[in-house]
Design a binder for these strands. Structure first.
Lengths: 344, 344
DNA sequence: CTGAAAGCGCTTACAG
DNA sequence: CTGAAAGCGCTTACAG
């Protein structure tokens, strides 16, 4: 369980001495040969891990610049792009290299983090950053067991206890969005959220609820809809909300892409934003700036989140103690053109 | 000069025999020690390269999945994003890993491809893809000398003779854009281009000129302006064009970002697109789809360009003969809402 | 600056 | 399944 900061190199012979077997036997275990008794193998493996044994190849790799792997769910959004830039930015400063993959492109079965963990050990990777992905707890444990630092950015499901994660103040952001709409005079405000189970989505929802409740504004469950984080869902969501007897006068969208979908559908229906409908997005990507009207949005410091994730991975790799298993960077409401007082 | 496809491993002792020096001396050369006579060193180095000697560490790296490096100028655009996705896509299929860097974030001095080339040899990289960057000929030669396959995507300056490049049919795309505007009845069509020296920009410009000339439509140099590939430049460009005594009725923008800038400035001035001004972009990124009005644009197959670049690098790495040093994938004009017949 | 000799770390081939 | 012995590839220390 201790992080071995191997100074002097541990030799195979040393492991042999430690475990009371011969050097050839240790060699077989290291090379994954079959002809070793299970107990012997277990004993030797334990000693290898304990002593932090590195094969000559690993030592060689360790000598070069360190490599951090980054696993995106997909790099298809402005969100990913900005996080990636933050990571590359800090990577250049810290002199580490970035190995990129997107599980969207992974062969069938998606994330096989366990196999990946072993490969990362073999190749001496400094750590792993996982961005906005769902993952199984067991898979993250595969890294823990091998002492590979992992940091997740905005995980879709809550990571197990002490896996380090970086995110934004989603709750405060949700609250700020709703308060802005309340201040403008809106009373029927819908939340058009992302995936119901996504942690960041829940935090945004609860921030929104908290703002409404603290002003004594009621909101029925019919005003809260969950779907996914894509524009098509904004199109559907607006359509659904408009079937209500008393439709909302404002919508808080779970992210900018959803908001852009709402905007598109509103335009198609001749609903003017912000005159007929106010709209707030979340993320503050260039999508918000470039849309027409420009979107009022809760900006996440995505670039800094990327930087923070890498900084945190490298700290762990150096064996530094972290202050916290969770880092949240501040969100900020940016008011643009898509919000105004309600009509009438 | 021959690509050594080292089957059996060459040992240090073999090199010693070949050159008539002792094994320890070869060892010193390999490890870059100082205490070797220049001539001896030269002779040994030549033999090492000739025989394709790999240190045990290198052999180990070669055993793992191969790694391709990708150097972006910046990953700050939808263009980069889509190319990157194409690369990752094919990387997953081919089982290679992708090491990413952006020279934008590089320490002062930018691209030092020469040093990078040596590092890539040491670490056994399969090849390099350079995306939309300016580079010095000498730097690319550093890779040639070390037999590292390089493919450039849409280089900002023409690469030296036989460096492999992947691009799109920019000339045909420029011609299609101009023809579309001509077909709509426009006669005063401006070209608001990117950097004057960029090859892709020149091809687009000449496609545009060719369309106009083949219809006998004149165009003065005042209708062709060059700047850069960013939105701010579209803002400036439109302002400049509007100072003309007889402003154009249509603008062909060098890329979508410029077009979005034009759109923004047009909106600010109360100029309606397409009623008062037609506008065609280039790239066909999501920027074109999402803007209001949606942009008519010449789409580049960016995803496929990424795939093709990686496929080509891997072919070279396997020592296959390429059909051509230049691959151009087809562009396609996508007509959306930003083009219409001229007013009056 | 060079290389014979010794040595290191790991692996292989094989007797038990 | 294990390990003594031999061997491989490379490096180190040092005499010339």
């Amino acid at each position: 369980m201790t992080l071995t900061t191997t100074g002097g190199k541990t030799t195979l012979a040393a492991i042999a001495r430690l475990t009371g077997v011969s050097a050839p036997t240790v060699s077989k275990v290291v090379n994954g040969r079959e002809d070793v008794a299970p107990q012997t193998r277990a004993k030797v493996l334990a000693a290898l891990e304990d002593a932090g044994y590195q094969s000559p190849g690993q030592r060689r790799t360790a000598a070069g610049p360190s490599v951090v792997e980054v696993a995106f769910d997909s790099v298809n959004s402005n969100y990913s792009l900005t996080v990636l830039n933050g990571i590359l930015d800090y990577a250049a400063e810290a002199g580490v290299e970035v190995m990129l993959s997107a599980t969207q492109h992974a062969p069938a079965g998606g994330h096989d983090l366990s196999r990946r963990a072993q490969r990362m050990v073999d190749e001496g990777r400094a750590g792993l950053i996982v961005v906005t992905s769902a993952f199984a707890e067991a898979q993250l444990m595969a890294f823990r067991r091998r002492q590979i630092p992992v940091v997740v950015i905005d995980p879709l499901n809550p990571p197990p206890g002490d896996v380090v994660s970086v995110g934004a103040t989603n709750w405060a952001g949700g609250r700020a969005a709703a308060e802005h709409l309340l201040d403008l005079g809106h009373r029927r405000i819908a939340y058009l959220g992302g995936p119901k189970s996504a942690e960041c989505n829940q935090a945004r929802l609860h921030g929104y609820m908290s703002a409404l409740m603290s002003r004594g504004i009621g909101f029925g469950p019919e005003l809260v809809i969950h779907g996914n984080f894509r524009a098509e869902y904004g199109v559907e969501g607006l359509s659904a909300l408009l079937t209500m007897p008393e439709p909302p006068t404002a919508i808080f969208a779970g992210n900018d892409a959803i908001a852009v979908g709402v905007l598109r559908e509103a335009r198609r229906r001749g609903i003017r934003v912000p005159e007929d409908l106010s709209l707030v997005g979340f993320d503050g990507t260039t999508l918000a700036e470039d849309s027409v009207p420009a979107l009022t949005s809760v900006a996440q410091p995505l670039h800094d989140m990327g930087r923070a994730a890498l900084r945190t991975v490298l700290r762990q790799a150096r064996g530094e103690q972290l202050d916290s298993h969770r880092v949240e960077l501040a969100t900020q409401l940016v008011i643009r053109e898509s919000t105004a007082p309600p009509a009438r």
